[in-house]
C-alpha cells in the first residue's frame, strides 16, 4: 500500500524541502520528517515526502552476506 521510491538528495531548498535525483530525473520533495538529511543521502520517498534515509552500507552488507552464504553453501 505504499509505493515509495529511492532518491539521492541533491540540494536542500530550505530546511523542509529539497531536490532529489530519482535516476536521471529530479523532483522537489518535502524533508519535514528528516530534518537531519544531508546532501548526498539516499532517501525513500512516498507521496512527495521523504520518510527515511536509506543506509547504503546496510544494503551493501545485505547483498554481500547473501552472496557469501550462497557461494559457500552446498551446490
Amino acid at each position: 500500500m505504499c509505493l515509495a521510491i529511492p532518491g539521492r538528495l541533491l540540494n536542500k531548498v530550505d530546511d523542509s524541502r529539497g531536490t532529489v535525483d530519482l535516476g536521471g530525473i529530479t523532483k522537489e520533495i518535502s524533508l519535514v520528517f528528516l530534518p537531519d538529511a544531508k546532501v548526498g543521502d539516499w532517501l525513500i520517498i512516498h507521496t512527495g515526502f521523504a520518510l527515511q534515509t536509506i543506509s547504503e552500507q546496510d544494503a551493501l552488507d545485505t547483498i554481500s552476506l547473501l552472496q557469501e552464504a550462497y557461494s559457500t553453501a552446498k551446490d
Partner: peptide, 13 residues
C-alpha cells in the same frame, strides 16, 4: 528491510 527500517521508526513522523 533494515536498510531503511529501524526498531523505533521515524519519530518525527
Amino acid at each position: 528491510y533494515s536498510r531503511m527500517v529501524s526498531r523505533e521508526g521515524n519519530q518525527v513522523a
